[in-house]
């Protein structure tokens, strides 16, 4: 860890100012000199590992009074970015109307981390790629653009099979983001010129030739809230992992369905643990719409979701696993009891 300055931002304008002041125009956000500090459950780890070396931390926890509300009003949901994961997961209306959100949060991390971590920080969580997190490896295109990728032919069991490039195969590690992207969530961003709303699907950027650029956020911008249109009581989050708790997904699926009289009116499928960014399987969704559900359909949907998947030495199993997870999540969503 290197020395850094610390300041508490008591209102959003001060936070944005402090973060903007230190921003250099051509730096990606992840290497900006000033970083916002919320729960700190990722940032502080990466600073100890010398992966992130911010000169300044801007503590945005004082903004929680305005930025942590959970508002469920009829046909939509608004979640403040500083709401704690555990508070949102325990909210009865979210459990009833958006089980995919409650479950994605409940199945993430540990109880202790969920009590500290915020929603905004959670979606910004950086990859767990061992080579990214170990600075003794020089070849990491995320850390050192153009240096190569140690994971490509290294130990890559946990790595991505979707959205990869020849520059980076690091997995996006989170769970909650799969629920957000599946439900067409919007993200509210507060910056120098006020707030703007963008689809959550546009927040993260696949690695392509610039794995160091992970999101479309600009230095000085903060996520202030998420909003989710509609209600999705028929939704599930299924997560396959090596142990029963406190472990990242090897493969997960966020599925939300609108089923009327046995026909699927609308379907959402997102994948976790297998892709470089929060991953919406739109081709798979298209196969579901207007159909009656059966196992054969589930298999075809699962196959479509992974049609473009590419495995490496240790992670090819994720393709077959991911298909089974999608099919099972669909079955669970179809058969779950929903109280109207």
């Amino acid at each position: 860890m290197r020395p850094f300055s610390y300041q508490r931002a008591t209102d959003p304008d001060l936070a944005v100012q402090a973060l903007s002041a230190a921003a250099a125009a051509n730096n990606p956000l992840t290497q900006a000199a000033a970083q916002p500090l919320a729960g700190g459950t990722t940032l502080i780890d990466l600073m100890k590992l010398d992966v992130m070396r911010p000169a300044a931390l801007v503590d945005i926890n004082p903004l929680a009074s305005g930025w942590s509300a959970i508002e469920s009003k009829g046909d939509g949901l608004r979640l403040g970015a500083l709401a704690k994961m555990s508070d949102v997961a325990a909210h009865t209306e979210i459990q009833r109307n958006y089980p995919v959100i409650a479950n994605s949060l409940n199945l993430a991390a540990s109880a202790q981390l969920r009590n500290m971590a915020t929603l905004g920080g959670n979606v910004m969580q950086r990859t767990r790629c061992s080579y990214f997190r170990d600075v003794s490896y020089e070849n990491c295109n995320k850390r050192n653009p153009g240096s190569g990728c140690a994971a490509m032919d290294g130990v890559n069991r946990m790595h991505a099979v979707l959205g990869t490039s020849d520059q980076c195969i690091a997995t996006y590690p989170g769970d909650f983001a799969q629920a957000l992207i599946a439900l067409d969530a919007m993200v509210e961003i507060t910056g120098r010129s006020g707030t703007r709303n963008v689809p959550f699907a546009d927040l993260h950027k696949a690695p392509g030739s610039t794995p160091d650029i992970e999101t479309t956020l600009q230095p000085g911008e903060l996520i202030s809230a998420f909003s989710v249109p509609g209600r999705w009581p028929r939704s599930v989050y299924l997560k396959a992992r090596d142990r029963q708790s406190y472990e990242f997904a090897l493969s997960s699926a966020a599925v939300a369905l609108d089923v009327q009289d046995g026909t699927i009116r609308d379907a959402r499928v997102a994948l976790g643990g297998v892709a470089t960014v929060p991953w919406r399987a739109r081709e798979a969704e298209a196969l579901l719409k207007g159909q009656k559900f059966d196992d054969d359909l589930a298999q075809r949907v699962a196959a479509a979701a992974f049609a473009d998947a590419r495995g490496r030495q240790h992670n090819s199993f994720k393709i077959a696993l991911g298909k089974r997870v999608v099919a099972r999540a669909l079955q669970q969503a179809v058969t779950m009891e929903v109280r109207s």
């Binding site: 540990s110 767990r128 061992s130 080579y131 032919d153 290294g154 130990v155 069991r157 946990m158 090596d242 142990r243 029963q244 708790s245 406190y246 472990e247």
Partner: peptide
Amino acid sequence: LEATEIDERNARYVNDNLADYLVPVNAD
């Protein structure tokens, strides 16, 4: 659960931390 992964190319341990070197949690 437990195994230390070794990168065959360079004989280095890869999952050298308690998040990636898995041991059981109570739920297990």
